[in-house]
Computed example of a mutant assay.
Amino acid sequence: MKTTSIINVGLLGFGSAGRIYHAPFLNAYAGYRLSKVRTAQTSPEICARELKGHTQVVSTSESIFEDPAIDLVVVAAPNHLHHSLAKQALEAGKHVVVDKPFTLTTAEADELIEVARQQQRVLTVYHNRRFTSDFRTVKKVCQSGLLGRVVEYEAHFDRFRNSIRAGSWKEDNGPGGGIFYDMGTHLIDQALELFGLPEAVRADLRIQRTGGQSIDSFEVVLEYPNLKATLKGSMLAKEPFPQFTVFGDHGTFMKYGRDVQDDALRIGTVPHNGPEWGLEPENFWGRLHTSHQGLEINGIVRSELGNFGDFYHNLHDVITAGKELIVKPEEARNVIRIIELAEQSSREKRTIPFTL
Rank of each mutant, 00 (worst) to 15 (best):
L194H: 02
W277R: 01
S303Q: 06
G233E: 07
F102M: 13
S214C: 05
P175H: 04
H250S: 09
D204T: 08
T137C: 10
H316C: 00
F14E: 04
K2E: 01
E199D: 15
Q208S: 14
S163F: 08
N314Q: 00
I300R: 05
P101L: 07
E330S: 07
I339K: 11
F160C: 03
L81C: 11
R19A: 15
I70W: 06
D172A: 10
Q293Y: 11
G268M: 04
R337T: 07
V122E: 03
F131K: 09
Q119L: 01
K232W: 06
E348F: 02
Y312Q: 02
Q120I: 07
G93D: 03
H80I: 12
K255M: 15
G299N: 01
Q118N: 08
P329Q: 03
R333A: 12
G10M: 00
K94S: 03
P275R: 01
L11D: 09
K170M: 15
Q190M: 09
T185P: 14
S291A: 03
T124K: 13
F157M: 07
A86S: 14
R49H: 07
P242E: 04
L315C: 01
A30C: 09
E171W: 13
K52H: 15
H292C: 09
L192R: 06
A229E: 10
I215P: 03
V221P: 00
N162Y: 05
S5A: 05
L51Y: 05
Q243G: 11
G10H: 04
L12D: 01
Y32S: 09
E45R: 05
V122K: 01
A86F: 12
L288M: 09
N8M: 03
I7D: 07
G31F: 05
V98I: 15
G177C: 06
H186E: 08
T132L: 07
N27E: 06
E219Y: 00
L112M: 10
G178R: 00
V138Y: 01
G309N: 03
Q344E: 14
G53Q: 14
V335F: 08
L356N: 13
P275Q: 01
L187P: 09
T55F: 10
V141S: 07
E152L: 01
F131M: 12
C142N: 11
L194I: 11
A23K: 00
N283W: 12
M1A: 14
T351E: 02
L90Q: 01
Q41H: 11
V150I: 15
E114N: 13
